[in-house]
Design a protein around this nucleic acid. Structure first.
Length: 806
RNA sequence: GGGAGUUUAGCUCAGUUGGCUAGAGCAUCUGCCUUACAAGCAGAGGGUCAUAGGUUCGAGUCCUAUAACUCCCACCA
């Protein structure tokens, strides 16, 4: 017997423990059932989870549960991304200490301790949300096992020629003091000043005006560019100009990348002010001059400004130029600047030895291969192709940081030769382990370790391998590739999705997955993005779940459209509360007639068959929609079916259920058969959205009938594939009559149970309606029914008010 | 500048190969204590589907243009 009220706090906890204990969601390694595998996003362990993360996991949940209900062997691993810069920055901030202020080992311990505490919190939240991923064996991106896979990937790609070590311009964050990748950039509109500065022609009184926002780059000036079509300045070509204040000369060169409309139409090239400078340096083989160092402080090249920070030097140099009369004018402007997404510092370009994965020369094959991915929604494909087409930098994977997977690399102290670890040494930390053997090049046994660590994404891009290794134990392998699904939010398309495609193509020549499902962001009611740092996170997942239940939270999440951002609103929580309450009450009511019932086939009454046909129709389209990741559409279908079941069908047949003596055995049995199957079938469909509530009802009654230990592995209920549309139409006509009876009573402001002496019905489906006479009379409280063939029309007779009102 | 999305009821949004009278929840209004549920039920009002053209027997849905908003990318001299 179901309780009078459903206590979600108690029940949800009960079932979460039960599922864990019984291993209901465990992946069966030895099964030969069809596998459905999910490359679950490992959350970055650097703070709190917010409703956006939670909603996106709830989408994955629905998909996983759907495939489980289809009888598939669902592989749904869980991991934590707990290495790299995000973790470092979180730890630095939390303890208000910089990594380089303490011994490396101590810092790493602090990171490990912090992430393990956070992971416990994450774990508890996932459990309280009723997640069906593997909560027992998680992977971590800093574990030894993961490091081994990551290092092996590095060695293999190096052997295959995809990875190279070079002293080349790379994107650099002066705050974090590390190289970064293009995918870690974020645009910011910053206020700046255009400074119009005089460059005198060598040994002449003639000058040209150069506009720059970065006068501190003057000491790194290589040349001045004019456009080939620039008639006004054409005569300068080939002449030398004197760099103001710093007094060295640079040539004037023509290049059509110059924009004559911008600034003064004359531009200085400094190594490296921006991407174009980088291009010009390469094209004209210009000398590389470092005006500032990796810490963002001016070098000796800057003379008296040496040691100043970039911004400080900019102001100082402007003052100096003003003083000596070389600054003609200044203009304020706002321009887009690339900044580091983790700290917001403007990105610089600096030359240092770095490890790179070549992506630029493989753009075409990446694009070609990515055509094989199915994106949900499909329009997200363009973000991926857009990103690949616009790539400008190879993937720099070395970070001058502390907490990450080390490179399995040493350098020979004698000849500088790169010495790679052998596979059997992995995982290895070159900082604490000496290599086996001697230098292949010179025989020297003295090595210097690589101090850099790898980019987090160099490892995270292997989640298909890392996560499946839990069952395959094959490490870097394509055994379970392509996985069925990669789910993530749209911000990760250019990062995690892109890098995973690259790595799997390079290693195996295969795509990592078949489908990609993209969730949107959940924004604050004011439209700003929820994030770990912005602090606009009033509604924590823990609070919401405690207040509304995990099931209702899932209802909310699964009502969001895929790929689309939406404002956080409590509206649909109320709708979810109503729905769960209604499911509880309806089940309680229906089951109260079924406790001694054993399902057996029976000849169905027309309206019972109508209900079954409706179920069949919705079931079919529900399957189709969930197979296509149309999660919210599938939900709204079953929801609509359910409300109709309650308000129309149950109302129609409840008298048959109550009064077998009046309506006969067939009438009652037919209603019981229909109630049993339709309720069971709907609960199974709802189970992918509302796992706790449906489990409670199922386990109370149906589990025994079906001999199952959980609704979630019990399979959907298919009542047949052929749908009798004609029959449905006739049933709808009967419902229209019911609806009109209700309207009549409502308009006359009388109770629905008010007795109506007689009703004349004219319809083209007269015979069918006659066959439903019993139900119509019962639901409408009608005395005599006169049903004739003809155009649709109802004529109401007199009604009798209850005695108390007379 | 390139790309994508959004624009439907007072509010939040569904509406997937074009097809009966454009739907839901919330809100509003009118009723109903109906042998599950008043946290309920029945009913009503409310929409030139952003704008302007076009294709079609038929357009919220397809095409073209315009506008507003959002996102991604580029723009950093």
């Amino acid at each position: 017997m179901l309780d009078k009220k459903y206590n979600f706090t108690e029940k949800e906890k009960k079932w979460q423990d039960y599922w864990q204990e019984k291993g209901i969601y465990d992946f069966d390694k030895n099964s030969d059932k069809k596998v459905y595998s999910i490359d679950t996003p490992p959350p970055t362990v650097n703070g709190k989870i917010h409703m956006g993360h939670l909603s996106s996991y709830m989408h994955i949940e629905t998909v996983a549960r759907h495939h489980r209900m289809k009888g598939e062997n669902v592989y749904f691993p869980l991991g934590f991304d707990d290495n790299g810069l995000p973790t470092e920055r979180y730890v630095e901030k939390k303890y208000n200490k910089k990594a380089h202020d303490m011994p490396l080992e101590e810092f790493i311990d602090l990171c490990l301790k912090t992430t393990s505490e956070l992971e416990k919190e994450f774990h508890a939240l996932y459990k309280s949300a009723g997640f069906s991923c593997n909560l027992k064996e998680n992977y971590s991106s800093i574990s030894k096992r993961t490091q081994k896979i990551s290092q092996k990937s590095f060695l293999e790609l190096y052997k295959k020629g995809y990875i190279y070590h070079a002293e080349a311009p790379a994107l650099w964050c002066t705050e974090c003091q590390t190289a970064v990748a293009q995918s870690e950039l974020e645009n910011a509109d910053l206020e700046s000043t255009f400074n119009y500065i005089k460059f005198y022609v060598e040994n002449s009184d003639e000058y040209v005006i150069v506009a720059t926002t970065r006068p501190e780059m003057l000491p790194a000036c290589d040349c001045v560019f004019i456009h080939p079509d620039d008639k006004k300045n054409a005569h300068l070509k080939g002449k030398n100009l004197v760099v103001p204040y710093f007094n060295f000369t640079v040539p004037v060169i023509c290049d059509d990348l110059v924009d004559m409309e911008k600034g003064s139409g004359v531009v200085m090239c400094c190594t490296f002010g921006d991407n174009v400078d980088k291009e010009w340096q390469r094209k004209y083989n210009l000398p590389i001059k470092e005006a500032f160092n990796s810490a963002g402080r001016m070098t000796a090249l800057a003379g008296e400004f040496e040691g100043m920070k970039i911004k400080q030097a900019r102001l100082a140099i402007i003052e100096k130029l003003k003083e000596i009369g070389l600054l003609v004018k200044q203009e304020n402007l706002t321009h887009a600047v690339s900044t580091h997404e983790r700290c917001g510092t403007p990105i610089e370009i600096i030359v240092k030895k770095q490890w790179f994965i070549d992506v630029l020369s493989h753009k075409d094959e990446i694009l070609k291969a990515s055509e094989g991915l199915a994106w949900h929604p499909e329009n997200m494909r363009s973000r991926f192709t857009n990103w690949v087409q616009n790539l400008q930098w190879n993937w720099c994977i070395s970070r001058q940081r502390y907490y990450g997977v080390p490179f399995p690399v040493w350098y020979c102290k004698n000849c500088g030769h790169v010495h790679m670890a052998s596979e059997d040494e992995l995982p290895v930390n070159p900082r604490s382990t000496k290599p086996k053997g001697v230098c292949e090049n010179c025989g020297c046994a003295d090595f210097e370790p690589e101090h850099d660590v790898m980019d987090t994404w160099a490892t995270s891009s292997l989640t298909p391998q890392i996560s499946t290794d839990i069952v395959t134990h094959k490490g870097l392998s394509d055994d379970m590739i392509p996985m069925n699904l990669r789910p993530n939010a749209h911000d990760n398309i250019r990062v995690w999705d892109f890098y995973t495609v690259v790595k799997n193509l390079y290693h195996f020549g295969k795509l990592p997955w078949k489908d990609v499902m993209i969730s949107g962001y959940v924004t604050s009611p004011d439209g700003t993005k929820l994030s770990k740092k912005s602090g606009n996170n009033k509604n924590s997942p823990q609070d919401i779940i405690a207040q509304y239940s995990a099931d209702v939270t899932r209802y909310w999440a699964n009502n969001l459209s895929l790929g689309k951002d939406s404002c956080f609103s409590l509206d649909s929580f109320d709708a979810g509360k109503k729905l769960t309450n209604k499911i509880w009450n309806a089940s309680k009511f229906v089951l109260s007639f079924l406790y001694d019932y054993t399902p057996k086939s029976v000849e169905l009454l027309p309206m019972d068959k109508w209900m079954i046909e409706k179920y069949k129709k919705v079931f079919k389209s529900f399957q189709k929609n969930l197979d296509r990741y149309e999660i919210s559409l599938a939900l709204s279908e079953v929801e609509k079916l359910f409300w109709g079941f309650c308000d129309d069908y149950i109302e129609l047949v409840k008298r048959r259920l109550y009064n077998p003596d009046i309506y006969g055995e067939q009438g009652t049995e037919s209603a019981k058969y229909t109630c049993y199957h339709v309720l069971l079938g709907m609960l199974k469909m709802f189970s992918v959205y509302l796992p706790h509530l449906t489990e409670e009802i199922y386990m109370d009654y149906f589990a025994e009938k079906e001999n199952m230990t959980s609704i979630h592995i019990s399979g959907y209920l298919n009542l047949g594939d052929d749908i009798d549309e004609e029959f449905l139409k006739r049933g709808e006509e009967v419902m229209q009559i019911v609806s009109q009876i209700r309207q009549f009573k409502s308009e006359n402001k009388i109770s629905l149970k008010t007795f109506i002496k007689d009703l004349k019905i004219s319809s083209r489906f007269a015979d069918f309606i006659k066959s439903c006479e019993v139900d119509l009379k019962a639901v409408g409280s009608i005395g005599e029914l006169e049903i004739t063939d003809g155009d649709y029309n109802l004529t109401f007779g007199e009604f009798v008010l209850p005695e108390s009102e007379n």
